[in-house]
Simulated assay, not measured.
Amino acid sequence: MQRVFEFRSFLVFLIFVSLLFFALLMPFLGAIFWAVALAIVFAPVQNFFSRHIKWKNTATLCTLFCCTMIVVLPFLFIISSVIAECVKIYASLSSGTINPAYYFDEIQKAYPFIQDIFNQLNLDPAQVKEKISSFALRVSGFVAQQTVHLGQGTLSFIMQVAIMLYVAFYIMRDSKMLVMKLHKALPLGYKREQLFFAKFTEVTRATIKGSLIVAIVQGTLGGLVFYFLGVSSALLWGVVMTLFSLIPMVGASIVWLPVCIYFFAVGAVLKGFILLFFGAVVIGLMDNILRPVLVGRDTKLPDYLILLSTLGGFVIYGMNGFVVGPLIATLFIASWEIFSLEFNYDDTDESENEN
């Protein structure tokens, strides 16, 4: 009896201390999560250097250097450029240099059926135009305010990046030992733990390689075609297309298609056809071409689950949600698959055995 009491007391104490430790790590959970994600994605690179360099620390530093050059530095450059573009656009909207009402008038002139739609819906085009202008100003103001706050928090952001790289170094170097310790600590059973670890690795790698890289390629191509066609703030629109490409069934077309319609409206037919062809064929096919190559045999959720888990992840976890959402969905499915296999039985088979 005393032994049971001691065990339960220790269990309560263990949970209490674990919660306290989790609270300590709360400010750095994003950095820790991305450190784990980078360690998983760059595991083949780490294995390559480990085979050719006998010093473990040196091999890990080489992997971390590749990670920094391929991921971290380009990301920091894009973030700084986007901040500058957002502030510039807000200033142009505030001063009237960019006037959304002008673009609305141009589209309305080119497509007369829009006026018929307004008449059927009892809408005043002047009020719609005013609402569009005020909405554009509010949205750009909000984005500019957020980017300025991000710029003011540069020191905190750099610290998060430094913590991410620091943690990633130890996870890359000691990954086998950490996995062994997790196996010993978790009370789920070795086979179940292996399955969960495999699912975690597969989904993280598949989401980052199959979703993020494809979205970056689509956003980059969209930004480049915008730049060559003379669309202002091409870099910013490229980043916006990247973000929308992360959302299934939405994609980059939500950005480039309205611009294509505007080109046709103002008589820039050649630009319109170039953008339409490039957007529908080149950008649109990137997902079908790149995803099978990058993901390979990694786990792929059904499209409807990807959509729901990605959107839910964005709402709850912010930008981290595009990985966290599908990961939670996959672990949920894996858990119920294990449950159905181990704890359910077929009534028909049992009745046949009885007969």
Results as ranks from 00 to 15, higher is better:
D124I: 07
I40T: 12
A144Q: 03
F200S: 10
L235S: 08
E337N: 13
E130Y: 04
V72H: 02
I163L: 15
L14G: 05
Y103A: 00
M159Q: 11
F135E: 07
K131G: 02
Q120I: 03
N320K: 11
I117W: 15
M177F: 15
Q145G: 09
L11M: 08
L25A: 00
L229F: 08
I338T: 11
V217F: 03
G279V: 10
D105R: 10
F77L: 15
I316L: 13
F339T: 08
F21V: 11
V240N: 12
L212E: 01
V231E: 13
L307Q: 13
A268G: 02
L341W: 15
M1T: 04
G151T: 10
I98W: 11
I40A: 08
E85T: 06
K56W: 00
T63S: 15
G296P: 01
E342L: 07
M164C: 14
S156G: 09
F42H: 03
P112V: 10
K181I: 08
W55A: 12
I79G: 00
L229R: 02
F343H: 12
K271A: 02
S80P: 01
A185Y: 11
R192V: 13
P44S: 07
C62F: 13
M241R: 05
A43K: 11
G151H: 08
I333T: 05
A126H: 15
T207A: 12
Y190F: 11
Q218C: 00
N119A: 12
L301K: 01
L64K: 08
G210Y: 04
G279M: 04
V225S: 05
A162M: 12
S211V: 08
I306W: 03
F75L: 14
I32L: 14
L64I: 15
L188G: 01
F10N: 08
D349M: 15
S351Q: 15
V41Q: 01
W336G: 07
Y262F: 13
I306T: 07
I40R: 04
F10H: 04
F244H: 07
F13R: 10
S140Q: 05
S9H: 11
M180Q: 13
K300W: 01
S340H: 11
R138S: 08
M180G: 10
V266Q: 04
V4W: 10
V203T: 12
G153L: 03
N288L: 05
I254S: 05
Y190T: 10
Y345T: 13
T68E: 07
